[in-house]
Nucleic acid binder design. Structure first.
Lengths: 119, 119
DNA sequence: CTGTATCCTCTTGGATACTG
DNA sequence: CAGTATCCAAGAGGATACAG
């Protein structure tokens, strides 16, 4: 009966800080895609470029640097010739995968809902 | 034994489309915060403004409109005086909460990791 | 209270060309 | 192959003032 206790308008203090912290990581252009394409294993620079078609070299390398600086992925120079560089998720970066999966799941529902209302 | 089959460099086709779809929803400035602050129940415009301190009226109303257009939240005009407007998550919008929770969880780990390496 | 309209700044990302 | 440098356009977001 007295279940209408939701009159309390003083917001319960959430944690927008941690939210913002992580959003900053995955908000850059193509950042989520980079992580997404690395989730199955390491990839090289040019592979990522073709994985994510319309990404410019500048932005990709920018994003990779940022993600590396944040400890989300690692950069390894392979002593081959021609030289190649491998990017891989760190354990920390792997922690992002479940979050992205949750996002993908919602994405599907959003698309479905969007399609439904355009009938 | 033959577990090194990860030599396959032809990327397994992921679903960046749904990813992008949902990222578009939560990428706008303050969008995640709006959803986050609505997860415990409906809030009014001015309440959201004080919930999320440095948000300008323009951007907040912009974001609310977008989120409403995407079916993530509903806008209800209360016939009170002075008139007030309540925003609430739709079922679709509530689907975003788990994703945000996953993001918050990662945010905590990112902050912890960041703090640790600054010792 | 709940927005909208303008103006303005600053960041972001793309294209292109060039280096190691 | 793996980037970096430069230039550029577009858009997002903040401040302020005003309207219903």
């Amino acid at each position: 009966m007295g279940l209408k206790v939701r009159k309390n308008r003083s917001a319960p203090p959430p944690e927008p800080c941690a939210l913002t912290e992580c959003m900053a990581v995955i908000s850059g252009a193509w950042a989520p895609n980079v992580i997404w394409h690395l989730r199955a294993g390491p990839r090289r620079f040019s592979e990522l470029r073709t994985d994510i078609p319309p990404v410019s070299a500048k932005v990709l390398s920018q994003r990779l640097k940022e993600l590396e600086a944040r400890g989300v992925l690692s950069r390894t120079i392979q002593p081959t010739s021609p030289p190649s560089v491998e990017y891989a998720l760190t354990p920390l970066g792997e922690g992002l995968v479940p979050a992205l999966e949750a996002i993908v799941a919602v994405g599907h529902r959003l698309k479905a809902a969007h399609a439904a209302e355009r009938v």
